[in-house]
């Protein structure tokens, strides 16, 4: 329950930043918050209180966390970091042309 509440709050916070904020960098932060919320939920949900790490698994241990969600999340974090870096580079490039990072002042981003 607590996990779901945190997930929803974080996700909506990111969504709010993405939709409402005019600053492009704040939009990137919002996007990353949304991703972080999903990753947080995945990791917490898959945590069943495992006792040993998967690579030290022996026959005596009975309780271990499923490694697949962790692997998925790790890959997701890497992808999230690279896309965020790419977005920030594009914002720097755009700033060279327009001298602003305000979404409303850049004509091409308004539909």
């Amino acid at each position: 329950m607590f996990i779901n509440a945190v997930f929803i709050i974080l996700f909506l916070l990111g969504f709010y930043a993405l939709i409402v904020k005019k600053n492009l960098i704040k939009m990137v932060i919002g996007l990353n918050l949304m991703e972080a919320a999903v990753f947080f939920w995945v990791i917490s949900f898959s945590d069943i209180g495992g006792e040993v790490a998967i690579h030290k698994l022996n026959e005596a241990a009975v309780n271990f966390n499923d490694p697949v969600p962790q692997a998925l999340t790790l890959t997701g974090i890497v992808i999230g970091a690279s896309t965020a870096a790419l977005l920030l580079t594009l914002i720097i490039e755009l700033n060279k042309f327009t001298d602003t990072i305000d979404r409303d002042e850049i004509e091409g981003l308004n539909n």
Binding site: L24, L90, E93, G108, L109
Partner: peptide, 12 residues
Amino acid sequence: EKTTEAAMQYLY
């Protein structure tokens, strides 16, 4: 300027 904006929107 145009291509950077387009790429940014595409990536978002």
